[in-house]
């Protein structure tokens, strides 16, 4: 099997190729985000303009042509409607033209599974941290095999919290990484810390941090915000591990690119002798290869969809995505 995967849920248009679980290529372009954030319709136009070129280069890098492709996957959701639409239409066009099976893929499942399969974890607790989502997940077989949500944010995702703070602090629109840079050499002061069982909230923390910008050194605010927010999700994940008795931790999603968060999860793993894995940044950032990898698993498990049923779902939750493999 050789499967092409297309990711277009937000600012990235990515295409990857996987052959029997091995990633052959992973190409992408990113819609340039200004201070105003992402404008969905403009990002969608950008994706449409770049689609052909990125597909071509992904095939070239893999040393293949379209005729070699035996299946195509695309991100069904969650994400921004206009952006998702471009990936969906591109995949449908390819599937129809080459008469190959098509698989709609959950975006979060892409991030998680590309990492889990790479490291070979059987039954991890996943800390999935992205822009709009922050969740503690683990497999369950109840009804069908899927990732059960043990805990999650009750308001905004941790990535969005960092983004919003970065905007208020007039940082470059490079999201979490510019907050991390500002936080270097910062000193800690108290911030609201809200964990309820395995759930957490971030708006109180964000509001407080923005307010503190007026009368504190910005680097101390950035540092304290980051330390507090990361400690919250780490604690929730630790609770889920002890509750479920699972012994593997997977850190995944865009915010998993944070060195500090990765270090913190590693310390938790060490303290309990758990195994911990965080994929290379290439797979934590949005990318097409993860969609190809999951689409290939779906194809192998007989989960292709009739083309007319291939929709998008902006709120496609990871706990409704079947993991039949």
């Amino acid at each position: 099997m050789v499967v092409l995967g297309i990711e277009s849920s937000a600012h990235t248009f990515g295409v990857g190729v996987s052959e029997n679980g091995k990633i052959l290529s992973n190409e992408k372009v990113m819609y340039p985000i200004g201070a105003g954030g992402i404008i969905p319709a403009k990002a969608a136009d950008f994706h449409a303009e770049n689609a052909n070129q990125i597909i071509k280069s992904a095939l070239a890098k893999a040393g293949l042509t379209m005729g070699d492709i035996t299946g195509v996957g695309y991100t069904r959701g969650p994400g921004l409607g206009p952006c998702l639409r471009i990936g969906q239409l591109t995949a449908k066009t390819i599937a129809a033209k080459y008469s190959i099976p098509i698989m709609p893929v959950n975006h979060a499942l892409g991030h998680i599974e590309v990492a889990r399969l790479a490291v070979g974890f059987k039954d991890p607790i996943v800390l999935y941290v992205s822009g709009g989502n922050s969740q503690i997940l683990g497999f369950t077989e109840e009804k069908f095999k899927h990732y059960h949500i043990y805990g999650e944010t009750f308001d905004i995702g941790i990535g969005n919290m960092l983004d919003s703070f970065a905007r208020e602090a007039k940082l470059n629109p490079a999201w979490g990484s510019s907050v991390a840079k500002l936080a270097e050499n910062g000193k800690y002061f108290d911030m609201p810390y809200t964990v309820k069982g395995m759930d957490f909230t971030f708006t109180g923390l964000l509001t407080n941090a923005v307010k503190c910008l007026a009368d504190h050194d910005p680097k101390d605010v950035a540092f304290s915000l980051q330390e507090t927010g990361f400690a919250m999700v780490c604690e929730a994940a630790e609770r889920a591990l002890l509750l479920t008795k699972k012994r593997e931790i997977l850190l995944s999603g865009g915010v998993a690119q944070s060195k500090r968060l990765s270090e913190m999860m590693n310390l938790i793993a060490k303290a309990h002798s758990f195994r911990m894995y965080n994929a290379p940044n290439e797979y934590n950032a949005d990318n097409g290869a993860m969609i190809a990898v999951v689409a290939e698993k779906m194809l192998d498990a007989g989960m292709q969809k009739p083309i007319e049923k291939c929709d998008i779902n902006q709120k496609y939750r990871v706990d409704s995505a079947e993991v039949r493999w």
Partner: peptide, 12 residues
Amino acid sequence: RGRYQTRTLLTG
């Protein structure tokens, strides 16, 4: 309560 917030500036 829909807890999923549409991603604005997303990081992944």
